[in-house]
Amino acid sequence: MRLRKVELHLHHEGAAPPSFIKGLAKEKSVNLNGVFKSDGSYAFRDFVHFLSVYEAATSVLKTPEDYARLTKAVLEESAANDVIYSETFLSPDFCGGSDVGAWREYLHAIKDAADEAERDHGIILRGIVTCIRHFGPEKAKASALCAAETAGDWIVGFGIAGDEMEGKPKDFAYSFDMAREAGLRLTAHAGEWGGAQSVRDAVDDLKVERIGHGVHAINDLALVDKLVENEITLEVCPGSNVNLEVYPSLADHPIEKLRQRGVKVTVSTDDPPFFHTTMRDEYINLARTFRWDEDVFAELNDTAARAAFCDEDTRTRVLKRLERT
């Protein structure tokens, strides 16, 4: 489906093509036994195992130059799927060990590669700094400091990812307050594994304006109404949810029910090579399952562009490119 697309929920390392990680591991003589299946794809059993495989694959990304090369590979793939604007989750824990000086070096390399991709492929990238939930609240503060020190036109948001079953959103309120005071917009992974209550807690305790996943909100209709009333946007990743067995099939996925009740939903790939998906695949599968037509997808992309954390000049450019002729 050749529609221009906006993607708001993409993990930078999680978008790394397996061939890229394999090649880097070979260059660096890093043993990644157990990370790949015999067919070359990433190997994991469940969500917790996925996190450990993700971190093992990420271990070969050791320098700013590695991240520059990764950025080019990721954006080439996104652009090939007609994505014109993307926001990517970046963790200072993986980029310099949450040291502000080292983080700046990684960020400079990533941004330079993104600028090159914008010139070559017309895709715009912006960064959202994420703390890692299962690394704990203290490490989150270091990530928030990195975010605050580099907030601006390119680092536009702050969020939290990782194991949703570790701790509570309120444990990370200090970090979110720091990011908010630096002018960053806020999102949080919730409602993928932690049920509807985790969405409510993220909204109430972290004061976010977007929720990553958020799909289990459908089990609490009062919460659904609250999302609508407060204009909270959901970064929904249907292929990821089905692959990880959050739902048994796309037909069982609540994205259409949420949309029908007036929730602002968007579509993203999460960690596309891990979950055997692309943005084009997501659109094709959603169209087939829910009979969505181009008008529905135009609505989704308009919602995503308006929920993006970029500056208004960038938003205007993106909205203009989304216009159908």
Rank of each mutant, 00 (worst) to 15 (best):
E229Y: 11
D252E: 07
K26C: 02
A151D: 03
P238H: 03
A188N: 05
A304T: 08
L234D: 00
V30K: 04
E7G: 12
R185G: 04
D115T: 13
P254T: 09
I255H: 00
T303Q: 03
V246S: 07
F158A: 14
E312Y: 13
E229K: 14
K168N: 11
F274N: 01
I128V: 14
T187Y: 10
R321M: 15
R291L: 12
D82N: 15
F47C: 08
R4M: 06
D120K: 05
L206F: 03
M178G: 07
D39I: 09
F89L: 03
G167V: 12
R126T: 15
H12P: 10
S91P: 13
R133A: 04
W154L: 09
G212M: 05
P238W: 00
L319H: 14
M1K: 06
I132T: 00
F309W: 07
M1R: 06
A196F: 11
K72V: 14
D225C: 05
W103C: 02
I123G: 15
V30F: 12
T269H: 09
E229M: 02
V296Y: 12
L125R: 13
S240G: 00
A147G: 02
D311W: 03
E245H: 07
R69G: 15
A15V: 07
D115V: 12
R185A: 10
D93S: 13
I84V: 12
R321K: 15
E87R: 03
L107D: 01
A308D: 01
E229V: 03
V263D: 05
G262V: 04
D225W: 04
P169H: 06
A251L: 08
K37E: 12
T289A: 08
D220S: 10
D171V: 13
E55A: 12
E149R: 12
G40Q: 08
T278W: 13
S19P: 01
M178S: 03
A114Q: 11
R321V: 13
L258K: 01
N241L: 03
A56C: 09
S19E: 15
K264Y: 00
S38T: 13
V203E: 04
N301F: 12
H253C: 06
S240L: 05
H216E: 13
A142Y: 07
A140M: 03
D115P: 01
G14T: 07
K26H: 08
L221C: 04
W193P: 10
V53S: 03
A80I: 09
H189T: 08
I218A: 00
A144F: 05
T187S: 13
G96W: 01
P238L: 00
K141G: 05
E13Q: 11
T289S: 01
A109C: 10
S78L: 15
H253D: 08
E231L: 05
L221K: 13
G167P: 01
S98G: 04
